Simulated scan of single mutants.
Amino acid sequence: MTVDQEARRRAQVLIFDADDTLWENNVVFERVIDDFLAWIDHPTMDRTEIRAILDDIERANAVAHGYGSKVFLRSLGDCLARLRDRPATEAERREIDRLALALVEHRVELMPGVAEALDELAQRHKLLLLTKGDREEQQRKLDACGLLHHFGAAHIVAEKDVDTYRWLVGEHGFEPARAWMIGNSPKSDILPARAAGLNAVFIPNENTWVLEDDELDPTDAGVLRLAAFRDLLDHF
């Protein structure tokens, strides 16, 4: 064990992202998008071109309306309207709802090793949970995950930006330098946490939403990069 690892094993504040860090999430949205692109079957545009349009629409709707399956369904309808150059018909909206049924029925599927790792980490550190999105939708997942007993608090926020992390520091009164934001999203978990003075642990997920991607500084010593969630036990 290195000196840094020994230091990190002493009480820290570990803040966990939820979607695509504790449990799978975006992979379900990606499956719906695949079905949507196949259903559209545009006469002149291929799937890549249509996906680029959908990404732009999702980006705008996230700013205007937030996150979650309701906004996602709105984006699919807006994408169809742009491609057809007319509003979606009632029949088309019903088909979109049918394609996205998996989002409503989706059960929380924990990432490998999450429950076991949290059991151990909670014995040494203060654990917090920070997730963004539709409050009702995120609360449903929190209630179903079976993990809440590990956390001193769980917060659902509209956005995870620098101000959110500064608010979290003030809310719980911890020293940023002894806190770590743990997540899969460079845009929401790593970069704004670092800008607020926290350390961060980046655990990539191959199914991370494209709009959550961003460039990380490979020389930033305040970012620990791990391959899997269970690897946290080797460092904290």
Results as ranks from 00 to 15, higher is better:
119 D>G: 06
122 A>R: 15
122 A>P: 15
122 A>C: 10
124 R>F: 15
125 H>Q: 10
125 H>W: 13
125 H>G: 07
125 H>F: 12
126 K>L: 15
127 L>D: 04
128 L>F: 00
128 L>D: 01
131 T>W: 06
132 K>D: 08
134 D>I: 09
137 E>S: 14
138 Q>I: 00
138 Q>V: 06
139 Q>K: 12
140 R>Y: 11
141 K>W: 05
141 K>R: 08
141 K>F: 06
143 D>K: 12
144 A>Y: 03
144 A>H: 03
144 A>S: 10
144 A>R: 07
146 G>A: 15
147 L>R: 12
147 L>K: 11
149 H>I: 03
153 A>I: 07
153 A>K: 08
154 A>M: 11
154 A>C: 09
155 H>K: 14
158 A>E: 08
159 E>F: 13
160 K>Q: 08
160 K>H: 02
161 D>Q: 02
161 D>W: 04
162 V>Y: 05
165 Y>K: 06
165 Y>F: 10
166 R>W: 05
166 R>H: 08
167 W>A: 06
167 W>C: 00
169 V>N: 14
170 G>A: 09
173 G>S: 14
173 G>T: 13
174 F>G: 05
175 E>P: 14
177 A>Q: 14
179 A>F: 06
179 A>M: 05
180 W>Q: 01
183 G>P: 14
183 G>H: 05
186 P>D: 10
188 S>P: 12
189 D>W: 04
190 I>E: 04
191 L>P: 05
191 L>T: 05
193 A>I: 00
194 R>D: 00
195 A>M: 03
196 A>H: 07
197 G>H: 03
197 G>V: 01
199 N>Q: 11
200 A>G: 10
201 V>N: 08
202 F>G: 00
202 F>S: 04
203 I>W: 02
204 P>E: 01
204 P>V: 06
204 P>R: 07
205 N>I: 08
205 N>G: 14
206 E>Q: 14
207 N>E: 10
207 N>S: 03
209 W>R: 01
211 L>F: 08
212 E>G: 13
214 D>C: 04
214 D>R: 09
216 L>D: 09
217 D>E: 09
217 D>N: 10
217 D>W: 15
218 P>F: 13
218 P>L: 11
219 T>F: 14
221 A>F: 12
222 G>K: 02
223 V>A: 03
225 R>C: 09
226 L>A: 09
226 L>D: 11
